[in-house]
């Protein structure tokens, strides 16, 4: 049934997307290399050369990891949402693969953001965890990632066994995107309801001595994220190719 469907023929055509693979072959190591150099450089700068903050003291250095992770945790789901939209509207199989590939790195960055934030909060706020809007919506993001990864895995197993249903993952990816603007606006909304101003600490004006290593670190982490997504896409494509070749051999 799968082979007769014209859409799946198209999928097998894309399972050998020579152009993407040619691009990814040199772009992936480049992104990973540049990302590692930039990230380690920015972290060394932030850890060794930046003076302690007037209010936060030495703990300010955690933010050089925390803030890029927070951005990339949200960027990961944005990637999933945009790729899912492209998958659903234009049925582009590479978009489906990109969405699946972004899930695990996105979840890792989200978890790192929560862990580093928690370590930072212990000396600064005096507690590991507060149930405020930003933290809660970000924790929900982590659980959305878990749900997405489990759903994608189940859909993929069914597809390998001959069923369809890989596009339900894309539907969940788009439904979960509702959370992204909530995370973004949570500081504004919940301040007005109950949150004391602690979370906006130092947000309003960052001194250039802190800003530059932060921005370079964010760029480096983004390159690593892009490299990992490309690597995972190549792996997923190789899986599909191997599967298709096996099927051809079995038919011949």
């Amino acid at each position: 049934m799968v082979e007769k469907d014209p859409k799946f023929k198209n999928m097998h055509g894309f399972a050998n997307p020579a152009r993407f693979l040619r691009l990814a072959r040199w772009l992936m190591p480049l992104l990973l290399g540049v990302g590692l150099v930039l990230a380690f450089g920015a972290l060394a700068w932030g850890l060794l050369m930046v003076p302690p903050d007037r209010l936060m003291g030495q703990t300010v250095r955690i933010l050089f990891i925390h803030v890029p992770c927070a951005w990339l945790g949200m960027a990961g789901w944005s990637t999933i949402a945009v790729s899912s939209l492209v998958e659903l509207v234009w049925r582009h199989p590479l978009a489906a693969i990109a969405a699946r590939a972004a899930a695990v790195p996105g979840a890792v960055f989200t978890a790192l953001c929560l862990i580093t934030g928690s370590i930072w909060a212990r000396p600064t706020w005096g507690t590991w965890w507060v149930w405020d809007g930003r933290l809660t919506s970000y924790l929900i993001l982590l659980f959305l990632y878990f749900g997405y990864i489990a759903l994608a895995g189940a859909a993929q197993r069914d597809a390998a066994a001959g069923g369809g249903a890989s596009r339900v993952t894309a539907v969940f990816g788009m439904v979960g995107a509702i959370n992204i603007p909530i995370i973004n606006r949570s500081v504004v909304w919940w301040n007005s309801l109950h949150q004391p101003a602690s979370i906006t600490l130092g947000k309003s004006s960052i001194d250039p001595t802190f800003l530059w290593p932060l921005l370079i670190g964010a760029l480096g982490f983004s390159c690593i994220f892009g490299g990992v997504v490309l690597a995972r896409m190549r792996t997923l494509l190789a899986d599909i190719q191997a599967e298709a070749r096996l099927r051809r051999k079995a038919m011949a």
Binding site: L141, F146, G147, A154, A155, R157, D158, V168, N179
Partner: peptide
């Protein structure tokens, strides 16, 4: 979402909980 999946029943709770949290809050 889970209707067409063999593992659907087990996934339902994991998918539903993050989406229902705002209602609970």
């Amino acid at each position: 979402l889970t209707a067409g999946l063999r593992a659907g029943a087990a996934l339902g709770g994991l998918l539903a909980i993050p989406l229902t949290v705002p209602l609970l809050i």
